[in-house]
Amino acid sequence: MARRRLLNAEAWNRLLMPPVEERDLVRHFTLSREDLALIRSRRTETTQLGFAMLLLYLRFPGRVLAAGEIPPAPVIAFVARQPGLRRSAFTAYGRRDEARRKHLAELTAALGFRTFGDATFGELVARLTRQPRSIGGRVG
């Protein structure tokens, strides 16, 4: 079945691209102590910065950083500065998609995320369509 696009590319970009204003960067891309410890547990500067970007993209704008996707330069610079990494380290991260996929699996497990599939869809529909109960047990 063909998919219809409800939004054009410009509208998708407005929804899914991270902000680049300093105030928004601070709000959405500031790393906690726990985040920094998790990031520093990676072996190289490249994997540390790549891991940090995946973590932050999952939080905001709430999506997976795509294979080969390069975040806006202000975002990379802001994130790299926090753990003291070179922002140029991110360039090498996209060369090996295996690392990105492995990091995504680790992050989804650590953050308690799960894949949205048919079973999850069924659970969601069941929860959203339950009848509300009144205090006396009767509705109406």
Rank of each mutant, 00 (worst) to 15 (best):
S88I: 09
P132M: 03
T129F: 07
K102T: 13
L111S: 09
V75P: 08
D24P: 01
R87G: 01
P83A: 02
P132C: 02
A37R: 11
T120I: 10
A73G: 12
G94K: 11
R138E: 05
L38G: 12
T91P: 06
R23G: 07
V139R: 15
S88A: 11
H28N: 09
E45D: 15
D35V: 10
F116D: 01
S41W: 00
N13K: 15
E34A: 14
E21P: 07
L54E: 15
F90P: 04
S32R: 08
M53T: 06
H103Q: 05
T129L: 12
S134M: 14
T108R: 14
Y93E: 07
L55D: 01
F29H: 12
R23S: 04
Q131A: 15
L15F: 08
A11Q: 14
R63P: 09
G84R: 06
G112H: 07
L128S: 07
G122L: 12
A80L: 00
V75L: 15
A9C: 00
V125W: 04
L111M: 12
T47R: 03
N13M: 12
G62M: 00
R100A: 13
P61R: 01
L16Y: 06
R33I: 02
G84L: 04
Q82P: 13
L6K: 09
H28C: 07
D24W: 05
I135C: 04
G62P: 15
T91F: 02
E22A: 13
T120H: 14
R87C: 00
P19D: 03
F29Q: 05
G140E: 08
V79M: 09
A77C: 04
H28M: 00
V139I: 11
Y93L: 04
A80M: 08
G84N: 02
A126S: 13
N13V: 02
E106K: 13
A11C: 06
A77P: 03
P18W: 08
A105M: 11
A99S: 09
P71D: 00
R133V: 13
K102D: 02
V139E: 14
F121A: 15
F78Q: 06
R81Y: 05
G136P: 03
R23V: 12
A9E: 10
R14W: 04
E34L: 11
V26T: 13
F113Y: 15
R100F: 10
V20F: 03
A126L: 12
L36R: 08
R4T: 05
P132K: 02
P71I: 07
L7G: 03
R27Y: 00
N13W: 01
R59G: 05
R81I: 05
R130P: 08
L58I: 10
R27S: 10
I135S: 09
Q131P: 14
E106A: 08
L7Y: 06
R96D: 07
I135M: 02
R138H: 03
R87V: 10
R87A: 06
T46Y: 01
R63G: 10
M53R: 11
T129K: 14
L111P: 03
T47W: 08
L128T: 07
L124H: 14
R87D: 04
P83M: 03
F60S: 05
L128C: 13
E98A: 15
R43L: 05
R3K: 15
P72R: 09
R130L: 06
A80Y: 05
T47E: 01
T46C: 04
E34I: 03
P71K: 06
N8F: 01
I135H: 03
G62T: 11
G136E: 09
